[in-house]
Design a protein around this nucleic acid. Sequence first.
DNA 1: CGACAACCGAACGTTGTGTTCATTGCCGTA
DNA 2: TACGGCAATGAACACAACGTTCGGTTGTCG
Lengths: 221, 221
Amino acid sequence: MTDQERPLDRGAPFSGGVGGGRAAEPDRRVRRTRRILREALVSLILDKGYERVTVQDVLDRADVGRSTFYAHHRDKDALLVSWFDDMSEDLRREFDAMAPGAQVEPSGPAAVLFQHAHQHRDMYRALCGRHGGTLVFRHLHGLVADLMRGHLRPHLAAAGSDLPVEVVAEFYTSAALGLLTWWVDEDFRYEPTRLARMYQRLAATGVIGALDHGDEVRPHP
Amino acid sequence: MTDQERPLDRGAPFSGGVGGGRAAEPDRRVRRTRRILREALVSLILDKGYERVTVQDVLDRADVGRSTFYAHHRDKDALLVSWFDDMSEDLRREFDAMAPGAQVEPSGPAAVLFQHAHQHRDMYRALCGRHGGTLVFRHLHGLVADLMRGHLRPHLAAAGSDLPVEVVAEFYTSAALGLLTWWVDEDFRYEPTRLARMYQRLAATGVIGALDHGDEVRPHP
DNA sequence: CGACAACCGAACGTTGTGTTCATTGCCGTA
DNA sequence: TACGGCAATGAACACAACGTTCGGTTGTCG
């Protein structure tokens, strides 16, 4: 964690709040600009890959002045991160909505992730795929790993396992994200639930499960 | 696979071979330069992280002229890749040396990887850790995934599993590399064999194994 | 409508890149 | 030991992108 995400003067000082306006809605122009910048960035990532996108590119595609960009974001990375923050909030909400069910396997979090990715395909293409950058992917990894640890800790503790939580969490987090990345690059060939089921099998029973014929579980012809 | 690694004029035309020189050994100066460049790069990565290392930095630390650098490598990435290629050759050899044993679980490849990483700690720190770049890591991922596929395919085929090999391979590859990365960042706290054993357990039996008390296997107090 | 915040765009200094070209000094040969 | 060819070398150059600044313009909110 470096010194990322200095907020600059994020959110216009005091303006919005006409009726019962949500907490300090920024000026309409601000929203517009930010939206346009994000869209431009995402579409550019899909075109050329994150690394090759230059601030100038974003400026051109968004048709926004140079100084305007820097008024909102410290640099290219900050723009991406701000976008990711919104996304991750969304994702976290979905996790929380599911949490009480308290599945035993790590497939709960993974399934939610796959579902979420499938809903926001373009964004995940820009995030994880061939084209994505390292930065946000690490953020995502950290996020999922956190959730995974929280999810697994009680189970491991209850069973008195001698495996450190971090190791187990890291294992399943990486497996999930790796599968996700692969899936994205394969252009979402499988249904999200199908992928989730495969993950679930591998996670729950390991190679042994993988070597089983899928018969007993097979839910359709 | 893009157009990486144009050899330029790798290997001086014809010079070496004074005594009984090995097959077309490049000029002594060339070897020296290349070695110095690599060392400089690696040490710089460990200092600042790959992304932040600039060609200029390498030039300064290696005390080498600009054109010299570009005579040997197309850019920063190419330098790193050339280094990685050597490493990976080494790694692949170790895999092959082990292959005939034909373990059932994916822990074979993983164990070799962990061992190799432990032997070349500094290099893996520069490769996988917090500081590593995306590029070589993807290469490594590809390499391991390949091996994993080759390793798993026969077993899955024999058992008539309905899981696609790519999925299973991706799962275990990502898990192994994720664990590796984590381990590197934790400064190799565990013994490589210990890590391998944990991986092995998770890979073989899944969460079920993780929830077991480690008693039956525990080889020491 | 009027104040003010946000946007614009051009210009500038800086840093890093990749290439060019004359020079240096190894290398093998006589 | 002396010599000529040739690869390696480093200074200088042109270029691309970055991030900042500042006076002028335009949209927004009250």
